[in-house]
Design a protein around this nucleic acid. Structure first.
Length: 348
DNA sequence: AATTCGGGGCC
DNA sequence: GGCCCAGAATT
């Protein structure tokens, strides 16, 4: 038996202070818990913090978020990645605002847009003290080590989920579901880390089968990943001296609904200059303007840049002031392109 | 069950 | 250069 009391005692002394966390004894704001959980999906705490602060200041309540134009929500999300999250966030806010509040149980939360099994359990536990154990990457690692589960992910997910649920049956865990969930996160983030776990400092060291077997650092094992193919594209920086031409990507799919520089499709073959220029937004004296490399989850991209200045822009898309390019809501790959061609201030 | 979705920090 | 991250939706 792994004692929840030992973890909770450790958490009471060593828990991380994070902007979306309420103080001990303070009732959490479900909106803030939910917002943070969506942002934290596959995204590190360090990356989320500045976005969370800005986002919360701009949209202080779920009603304010629901009432905002979608384009403004997407612009506030720009650079954080996985943009379907932002669209689902907005859709979820509208449902919740119409209902009046967030549902308090796992199944009802699970039915909302952008909320899957993990987030439903996390919001229920953290915001409403429902005795659920959310299983994220941290918890998978902790549980795989505690029980020495050597089968590789993702096949071992059911066994790991069962182990996590077993941990949550401890009466001490059931007495503090919100703290127990966050304690598991903090243990995974600060002690039971991916490469070199600090087992000497771990409150669960005595009961850890992985540590006892000397294989903790190797767990969880994972199936090998496929190689990322290389793709090529060309994009165009067209300015009239005060504005630059942008366009909107299709609402779904990669970078769905985000702004971009006009360009070619992205494909496996390289683009000859003349071939790429056939995709230019208008006829002009295009000059080569460097290359940008960017890694996506499942492919790597190399973009050849072309730039031109004309007196009058006549092309499809919309014009954005050069001086406010950082506020254009460009995804990171396009911010790289803009910075390569137009090395201005450079920050967001 | 597999694939498609971003981006950055850290080793 | 690879790994990881408070995963979900789609196919």
């Amino acid at each position: 038996m792994i004692p929840a009391a030992a973890l909770l005692a450790w958490y009471d002394r060593h828990r991380r202070r994070l902007p979306w966390r309420s103080l001990p004894g303070e009732r959490p704001d479900p909106y803030r818990v939910w917002l943070s959980e969506i942002m934290l999906q596959q995204t590190t705490v360090v990356a989320v913090v500045p976005y969370y602060e800005t986002f919360l200041a701009r949209f202080p309540t779920v009603a304010a978020l629901a009432a905002a134009p979608e384009e403004e929500v997407m612009r506030a999300w720009a650079g954080l990645g996985y943009y379907a999250r932002a669209r689902n966030l907005h859709a979820c806010a509208k449902v919740v605002a119409a209902r009046g509040d967030f549902p308090r149980d796992v199944d009802a939360l699970r039915a909302l847009p952008g909320i899957g099994p993990y987030t439903a359990a996390a919001v229920a536990a953290i915001a409403f003290d429902v005795p659920a154990v959310p299983v994220d990457g941290n918890v998978e690692r902790v549980v795989a080590r505690l029980f020495a589960i050597t089968d590789p992910l993702p096949g071992s997910k059911p066994a790991i989920a069962a182990g996590a649920a077993r941990l949550g049956t401890d009466p001490d865990a059931q007495a503090r579901p919100s703290d127990f969930a966050q304690a598991l996160f903090d243990l995974g983030a600060t002690i039971c880390t991916p490469t070199t776990p600090a087992c000497a400092l771990c409150p669960w060291r005595a009961g850890c089968a992985g540590q006892r077997a000397g294989i903790a650092a190797e767990l969880p094992r994972k199936a090998p990943k496929a190689a990322r193919p290389l793709r090529h594209g060309a994009h165009f920086w067209l300015t009239d001296g005060t504005r630059v031409l942008l366009r909107r990507r299709p609402p779904r799919g990669l970078l769905g609904g985000m702004a971009e520089l006009p360009g070619t499709p992205w494909r496996a073959e390289t683009w000859a200059a003349a071939e790429a220029l056939a995709h230019a937004p208008m006829t002009a004296s295009w000059r080569p303007a460097g290359e940008v490399r960017h890694g996506f989850t499942h492919f790597e991209l190399r973009i050849a840049l072309f730039a031109a200045r004309v007196d009058h822009i006549q092309a499809e898309g919309f014009l954005h002031p050069l001086a406010e390019i950082d506020a254009a809501g460009l995804p990171s790959v396009m911010r790289k392109c803009a910075a390569a061609v137009h090395p201005g201030k450079g920050k967001r």
